[in-house]
Amino acid sequence: MAKLKGYVEVNIGRCKGCNLCVVECPTDTLDLQPREVNDRGYHYAYMKNPDDCIGCANCGFVCPDGCITVYRKKVL
């Protein structure tokens, strides 16, 4: 059966660590960096469980700052 694989790129510099993408992700792929911060001091979002991403783009839709780029590919 074909499966959807996704990949999310986070624009680290723009991210404000609001956590809304983490909440909206149906597969628990994302989290905020627990220690690392960006130039503005925000704990930015990252793919904690990259294998789980299905590329649904929910995270992108709810991101207020346009930090998220989503790719999706069908794999057999």
Binding site: R14, K16, P64, D65, T69, V70
Partner: peptide
């Protein structure tokens, strides 16, 4: 494979809104 990205008409300026504010969406 691109399915979502920052809108083309939104520029690179850092938005001043508080984290998580609805205005940005």
């Amino acid at each position: 494979n691109l399915v979502y990205a920052k809108p083309a008409l939104m520029n690179e300026n850092h938005m001043h809104y508080c984290p998580g504010c609805s205005h940005g969406v």
